[in-house]
Nucleic acid binder design. Structure first.
Lengths: 91, 91
DNA sequence: GTTTCTATATGCAAATATTGCATACCCAAT
DNA sequence: ATTGGGTATGCAATATTTGCATATAGAAAC
């Protein structure tokens, strides 16, 4: 399912126009992103937690040439599924 | 930031009551979950992709006792941040 | 319809997750 | 306001993931 299909579903479930459903959805993702930019984590009960994970610099490798490459430190967004979420898929 | 705080922010940004903001938010997460239950992945452009990853059974270890443990197969929800999302945090 | 984005596939080293469990803590709902 | 429950932490050893370059195919966005 892609974003467009999701918006259609939300439009129906929320009784909104597609444009409004998309605006609503974008507002939510942006709000979450803003919180994460503020170095905060976002915990959503029953769903999961988004947090920014710092990844250390390390040595990588160009798989084409085998040559070693220095990879700088970086940050990425992690999503940790809540317990309830795991249970849904393991029962 | 927890869910309650997120709802307050959304309530302001979407011009909805807190109750409506929460209902809206829950509808979205539920829609995503339903798609994932249907063994589908959910791609959200500019944000990321949720997908269900199957994990094989394997042998683990209780770090307290050192004892070997059989870990059953399971499934978990993975979130892969989109390219745009990585850039936000690495610039 | 055109252009941008994403998945894939490759080899491999290092970073990180996983696992049981107790405790402390924070949150959510009563 | 209380309490039940989910979550964070720390631990050790192993399993798994990550991410590098790059091209291409396919999908999605505008």
């Amino acid at each position: 399912m892609n974003k467009k299909q999701l918006i259609v579903k939300l439009s129906g479930a929320l009784n909104l126009s597609k444009a409004d459903a998309e605006r609503t959805f974008d507002t939510i993702t942006n709000t979450i992103l803003d919180a994460l930019k503020g170095d905060d984590s976002v915990k959503i009960a029953g769903f999961g937690t988004y947090k920014v994970a710092k990844r250390k610099a390390r040595v990588g490798r160009n798989p084409r040439t085998g040559e070693q490459i220095q990879i700088g430190a970086s940050q990425k967004v992690k999503f940790l599924p809540a317990k309830a979420l795991k249970e849904v898929f393991n029962k």
